[in-house]
């Protein structure tokens, strides 16, 4: 059976009743919104409806599937988890997704470099496929770039059932000046492997959300991972220099 999600939304349209199809295709190039898809009476056409359901299923899958062990193994990194026991916990208990319990903390202390300039770690967040799709390219470029500038990069690891605010515990625990969480972002209908970088200067339990510097929409459909990584290198260098992150820094 043909996978209807294979062709891009921009190339899927319906010219029926359109006076200037050329103009419609041009308009479609400028957005991933579902315009120019036709209609039957007040309803979607069958194809549009199926595509909608398929994309939604894909988005939903990327939230509920696990990052496969093989992916983590291939990266050869340590894995820890938050207080959540499974994906359902992750959704219904956002607070647990921020808690790193003592046994897991000990794992980090035993295995990771202490007091690095920059601690980078990876979280599944709300999009598991983002890890395998982006981390290999993203992390290499960031860590090579920082090392070239003489910064000590901490030991990378993976946090299962991870939310951004694990950084409030992990940052101080490992004594990093800057903590950078690379985490899967809530999927939309147009991409199910996007990732964000949340970067904070000396995160701590009482910090504000606005103290994070964010780069979002990292994926082959958005900002190319290697180019995003190069930008993140410069952001981190500037944050290290200004000893501040988030909206108070004009980057």
């Amino acid at each position: 059976m043909k996978d209807i999600t294979e062709s891009s939304i921009q190339k899927t349209g319906c010219e029926e009743g359109i006076l200037e199809p050329g103009l419609m295709w041009k308009a479609k190039q400028s957005t991933t919104a579902r315009i120019g898809i036709g209609h039957t009476g007040a309803r979607y056409k069958t194809n549009s409806m199926l595509r909608f359901l398929a994309d939604q299923a894909q988005a939903s899958d990327s939230v509920f599937t696990e990052v496969e062990d093989a992916v983590i193994k291939k990266m050869n990194i340590l894995e820890i988890h938050t207080k959540c026991r499974n994906k359902e916990d992750m959704i219904v208990r956002p607070d647990w997704g921020r808690i790193v319990e003592e046994d897991q903390q000990k794992l980090l202390l035993d295995n990771c470099k202490i007091n690095p300039d920059v601690q980078i770690y990876f979280g599944d967040g709300l999009c598991s496929p983002a890890i395998g799709a982006n981390i290999p390219d993203l992390f290499q470029v960031i860590s090579k770039g920082l090392a070239f500038e003489g910064k000590v990069v901490g030991t990378p690891f993976f946090v299962r059932y991870c939310r951004v605010n694990t950084a409030r515990t992990i940052g101080p625990l490992l004594g990093a000046k800057v903590t950078c969480v690379l985490i899967g972002e809530r999927p939309g209908l147009s991409t199910a492997e996007s990732m964000s970088a949340y970067i904070a200067y000396r995160p701590h339990p009482k910090m504000q959300e606005s103290e994070y510097t964010v780069v979002s929409n990292i994926s082959r459909y958005g900002i190319p991972p290697v180019e995003a990584a190069a930008h993140i290198v410069d952001l981190i260098l500037e944050i290290l220099e200004k000893k501040q992150s988030g909206i108070r820094v004009d980057l």
Binding site: V141, G145, I223, P224, V226, E227, A229, A230, H231
Partner: peptide, 13 residues
């Protein structure tokens, strides 16, 4: 294509 910063940094290294 959008690769100047990453390529530039990689060459600098």
């Amino acid at each position: 294509s959008d690769i100047a910063k990453s390529l530039g940094q990689a060459i600098r290294r």
